[in-house]
Computed example of a mutant assay.
Amino acid sequence: MTEILRYAAFSDDPKGGNPAGVVLDATGLSDERMLAIAAEVGYSETAFITGRDEGGLRVRYFSPLAEVPFCGHATVATAVALGPGDHVFRTNAGEVPVSVDDAGRATLTSVDPAVDDLDEAGRAALLAALRWDAADLDESLPVKVAYAGARHPVLAASSRRRLAALDYDFEALKTLMESRGWTTIQLVFRAGEDTFDVRDPFPVGGVYEDPATGAAAAAFGGYLRALGIVGGDAVLHLRQGDDLGRPSRITVTLVPGEAGVRVSGQAVPIAG
């Protein structure tokens, strides 16, 4: 029988953060079985360790609807479940080193990030699906598509109220995201010089909203650095999940000379 662990990532409270399923031994499980387990668990992602060798751990991630190339919160959960030390996860997006300290705080280093423009048709369709208009945008943080293992459009809200009033067209956004290969939509509000409130619709995973999104956090760190919005040695604090009643806290660290983006947070077991 397959043992399924449950962790809340990016929180020190099991009632906060983003729940993730973790299967430490998925050797021999078919793709269909892993997808079925993810659907049964019902969290936005479940991580499966499908192999181990001297090169690291082969890790795959499934939402209730589909496999995703990389998932930050399930990476943090899996690393904490493995215990303190250094780990290398071999994901569909590439190798992701993860370290865990004795306090149960994990730090992953993403694959190399990238930032792309979004064409006018895509921008218009995205705003329409979100039920936003141009006046809702903070143009100091331009609309782009950011990548650090998965692709996430970044849109900045002009006010915290706009961010709080999330009411999007689920089917329209899901269809658009599937056609563009996007994993979540990174909606942000700049609350301070190094602090951002964020929300992430995730309809392609069968989830209205993700309470904490480490992959999007890494992509957003790369976006901020590439556009010169923050320095190359910035430490950023992302607050997510508050609007869902599951507060999550994500630290993003940019290290000079290091291409990847570091994403850190705690994870705790969920009882039962």
Rank of each mutant, 00 (worst) to 15 (best):
A218P: 03
Q186E: 13
D169T: 03
Y208D: 04
G272W: 13
P203L: 02
R190V: 05
P14M: 05
T175R: 15
G221L: 10
L127K: 09
P269W: 14
G192F: 14
I250V: 15
E209F: 01
G56K: 11
A135F: 15
A129M: 04
T251K: 07
A38Y: 12
L173N: 00
A172P: 06
D136G: 00
L236V: 11
Y61A: 06
L173T: 04
V204K: 02
A9D: 01
G85P: 00
L166M: 13
D136Q: 01
R58V: 01
A219C: 05
A134T: 11
P269V: 07
P84L: 11
Y147D: 06
M1H: 14
L187Q: 03
R180F: 00
L173Y: 02
D112V: 12
F10A: 07
A218L: 00
T175M: 04
G55P: 04
Y43S: 14
R131N: 12
L227F: 01
A103E: 06
L244A: 05
L82E: 13
G272D: 06
M1N: 12
A267R: 03
L126C: 04
R131V: 08
V111C: 04
R180Y: 01
D138V: 00
A9G: 01
P64T: 07
L238K: 09
V41P: 10
V230D: 03
A125T: 03
A106Q: 07
Q266N: 09
G122V: 09
L5N: 02
H237T: 08
R180G: 00
A267I: 01
A106F: 11
A146T: 08
G245C: 15
Y223G: 02
Y147E: 08
T195M: 11
G272S: 11
K144I: 03
A106N: 12
R131A: 09
V68R: 09
V80T: 09
A165W: 03
T213D: 10
G83P: 08
A191R: 11
A39N: 13
D53N: 00
Y43R: 15
T107H: 03
Y7E: 03
V235F: 04
D138R: 07
G17Q: 12
A217Y: 01
T253V: 09
A215I: 02
V261K: 02
T46D: 10
A156T: 11
R161V: 07
A66V: 12
A66K: 15
D200N: 15
L244R: 05
A234I: 09
L141E: 10
V111D: 06
D242T: 10
G257R: 06
D233W: 01
D25E: 12
M177N: 10
V98Q: 02
V96D: 11
R131F: 06
R90F: 00
F48C: 06
I49W: 00
V80E: 13
L155Y: 07
T183A: 02
R180D: 00
V230L: 02
L24G: 05
G28Y: 10
T195N: 08
L224T: 03
R249Y: 15
V111Q: 03
S264Q: 14
L108K: 00
L24P: 14
S99Q: 08
A8V: 08
A93C: 10
A79G: 06
L224P: 07
D133H: 14
V22W: 08
R60K: 07
A114R: 08
L244M: 14
E209L: 09
S99K: 13
L130W: 04
A47L: 04
L29K: 09
